[in-house]
Design a protein around this nucleic acid. Structure first.
Lengths: 211, 211
DNA sequence: CCTGGTACCTACTCGCGAGTAAGACTACTG
DNA sequence: CAGTAGTCTTACTCGCGAGTAGGTACCAGG
């Protein structure tokens, strides 16, 4: 990019989107520190001062990326879940939506999770916030469907474990891209719903269509 | 540290250990890029050229840290597991050893996992290697105990999911240090062995002493 | 055709941190 | 009490990257 002298004149809103896309790409490949504003401007097809004019400092730019991608992802999941269904079906649709998003937005996910969680301070806050929304959601799902009255704390921590498992399986998936999203989702579904205790006995969970 | 002029004369082996300890500390707090050789030398109580004389470049130093901590951790787990036991007991002892190590070596774990996994290239290799050893171990445990003849691939991927869940729960634990190691371990044990399906019905897994 | 405002640029400053040159201090060995 | 091997230091070089100063091209409306 930027092989030619001057870039086409474009309205600010469009440029800002281009810059954000470039930033997510570069941050995901290089990480926050190793990414340079020079490279981002290059990928975006403009010169460095434009970055500063539009998106502020490097840290501001990064934080803005985090916020945008986090919002996109939460929306994708919210759209995917099917409320007013059995608990296991709700969990299943949530998992499918989650892995679907990650599969189609690997760069977004890397920026969101891998990068944001390692840089301390203001960045991690956005992450923590997003995660806790997810945890509360799962916890509610659990308490609502539990027959034995488990404590709120118990449900919360189990939900945290599940969300963590999802995050980490998505992380693992980055290194095994050949697997389709549905398979990965189903795998986690079986692990957390049935448990190894059942699985080793050959008891498997099936999606609703097969019932 | 380094407030006084000259450091005491010490044999090379001892200095190298001090340097490594300092490096793990600084890398875990700041991350690879943000950590400076100047700060590491300061914490170690010596001057910068000593770092280069003994441990080579910054990247070499980091790789050496990764290798050392990975080895320490695998040894801790190997010592903790109890072979010739029921599968669930083996899993349980493994989990306890793992979370025990992480709890007593938070800095090590952060360097190992959080930092190494985000820096690409040669560092991630060490990590991947360690993880795959863990995965094979769990996969073997699974196939050995499964009645239904699951495919090797299925066992491998479930093992990967479990290891990932462990990693991520440890990650989560860093932000909730008040929980004791045993509780966290038990929680994961219940999640992966019983599954939510059982848990919501009130069926819980108990450690061997209670049987 | 001028006049402003907005998009865009080249070409810098400047501090920080990786890595090094050159030598000084200490302890053991004969 | 040399000589020498290994420990440790001060005081640099040098490149890279964040952030900026001071413009130039382009499109309105008058």
């Amino acid at each position: 990019m930027r092989t030619e002298g001057r870039a086409k004149r474009l309205p600010r809103a469009v440029r800002e989107r281009q810059i954000m896309d470039a930033a997510v790409d570069v941050f995901s490949r290089l990480g926050f520190h190793a990414a340079s504003m020079d490279e981002i401007s290059e990928v975006a097809g403009i010169s460095k001062p434009m970055l500063y004019a539009y998106l502020g400092s490097k840290e501001e730019l990064f934080a803005t990326c985090i916020r945008r991608e986090a919002t996109r992802m939460m929306e994708a999941i919210a759209t995917g879940v099917e409320p007013d269904q059995e608990p296991d079906v709700q969990l299943w649709s949530g998992l499918r939506a989650f892995f679907g998003f990650v599969g189609e937005n690997r760069a977004s996910w890397m920026v969101l999770h891998r990068q944001a969680s390692t840089q301390g301070g203001p960045f991690a806050v956005e992450l923590t916030d997003m995660r806790s929304r997810a945890v509360s959601l799962v916890a509610a799902l659990l308490t609502q469907s539990t027959k034995a009255p488990a404590t709120k704390l118990e449900a919360e921590s189990l939900a945290a474990a599940l969300v963590g498992a999802g995050e980490s399986l998505a992380e693992w998936w980055l290194d095994h891209p050949e697997e389709p999203a549905g398979v990965v989702a189903a795998r986690l579904m079986n692990l957390v719903w049935m448990g190894f205790g059942d699985l080793v006995d050959g008891n498997v969970w099936h999606p609703p269509s097969r019932r």
